[in-house]
Design a binder for these strands. Structure first.
Lengths: 245, 245
DNA sequence: GAGTGGTCTAGACCACATG
DNA sequence: ATGTGGTCTAGACCACTCA
């Protein structure tokens, strides 16, 4: 037989269409974090292509960080990992370069009607009912960040009845376990501005001091906004480096 | 014949060794930016592997940003591209999100013996002779960044005799054309601190105002430090966003 | 038309993980 | 032993660029 049965109407490459098909079943939630993808040979069979072509589609998912290969075991949908996001902007390592983990202190949680700008970010109707969480993150008792977090009340209702003692250092596992909402990606935006009295106080600054502001919009698999937060940090703790090319 | 003549002593994969060979000839300067790589078929022949294996090695170079494929023409060593580095930290887009290009104004250039910390960064002997360049970068006449740049006097001598009118907006092309020094990568580090009188004045601030500080260490192909610079910018212009996972 | 990269096939054998 | 991913072969044809 001849080598080429790829009788394609001028569409995109076959590996690319397979990549898209797999990706959309991850994004739609059909394949959840930790789930295993079909094996490469079975992907090849279902899409009627050679194994190498199926493999190339999986390669793309790996390159883009959607899945992770484990030799001999399979290929698995990755969980989002934020351990190197925010933290990287601050001096969170000790003198030997070891990563330090900040502790979270819950300052308060309440319901409120959505302010206009936050409603817009969360794609909620104006005055929709939101949950506001305020907390401080510390390393060695030194206040590193002051955070205000907004969530849809309807989707995160269980948080309102969680006793203060049971709030851990990380919120996203709580979202997942209590509310079934999984954060998949986020956009952080950095800028600077004056700190209002409350946050300034918690950071040990006088009101109006310049602070770094980090806003985050976190989204689920389906690209639906889940969380909006504003974190403020002391300028003298701020530090970040990265490589170019 | 049998499919497998890859009688490998348990070393790394063949595509990986080819990748390393190509990379080292880029890093050593044997292949310079703009040069074309050997074609994939000729790479396969010289290394005595199947075309697919050679291609995979080139894939790795492409993925890591060392080279660029041009369909039908060849594969070429990339030039470093800094257009999305520093600039991205500042509000350099207009309301429609179009990228704006800052103009550079040369404030001064002089020789001086290397201060200890800068000598260390540049891996030059203490008190080695350096060139110091001071400039301001503006968008629409608004001062965006104040920069102080340090270079080895010996390697960048031609800059000292360049008339002020001939300094363009970009330094790296000058380095390459006049001095034969090519910047290949850099590390930027962000932090904040008070501005000395000179920089503060140029940014329209009072001395001691908090500013964003961006230090950059730029290196050549051989990883030898070429340039160290300190850029200062107004906090109220500072803005950066990025995606996580 | 010759040469380049881009896609794809249909196999092979190896290394690793698990029951 | 079976199934998974990892490497590799030896071709094919297509799409693009350039002389």
């Amino acid at each position: 037989m001849q080598a080429n049965t790829h009788r394609d109407d001028s569409r995109s490459p076959r590996y690319y269409r397979i990549y898209q098909a797999l990706l959309s079943s991850i994004q739609s939630g059909g394949l959840k974090p930790g789930d295993s993808l079909p094996s490469e040979t079975s992907i090849a069979q279902t899409h009627d292509v050679a194994p190498g072509t199926a493999r190339k589609a999986v390669d793309m998912l790996v390159d883009r960080g959607w899945v992770e290969r484990q030799h001999g075991r399979g290929t698995f949908v990755r969980r989002a990992d934020f351990s190197h996001s925010l933290a990287r902007f601050f001096r969170l390592t000790d003198r030997e370069g070891v990563q330090l983990h900040p502790k979270s202190e819950l300052l308060g949680i309440r319901e409120l009607p959505a302010p206009a700008d936050i409603a817009r970010h969360l794609e909620e109707p104006e005055h929709a009912s939101l949950i506001e969480i305020e907390r401080v993150r510390r390393v060695d008792e030194l206040p590193l960040l002051h955070e205000v977090i907004y969530l849809s009340r309807d989707r995160f209702l269980p948080l309102l009845s969680l006793p203060a003692e049971e709030w851990g250092d990380l919120l996203y596992p709580l979202y997942e376990q209590l509310c079934g909402e999984v954060v998949f990606r986020a956009t952080d935006t950095l800028s600077a501005g004056p700190a209002p009295a409350g946050p300034a106080h918690h950071l040990g600054l006088s009101p109006g001091s310049q602070v770094i502001e980090i806003t985050r919009l976190a989204k689920g698999y389906d690209e639906r906004p889940l969380e909006w937060r504003l974190s403020r940090g002391r300028l003298d703790w701020f530090h970040y480096s990265f490589d170019i090319r």
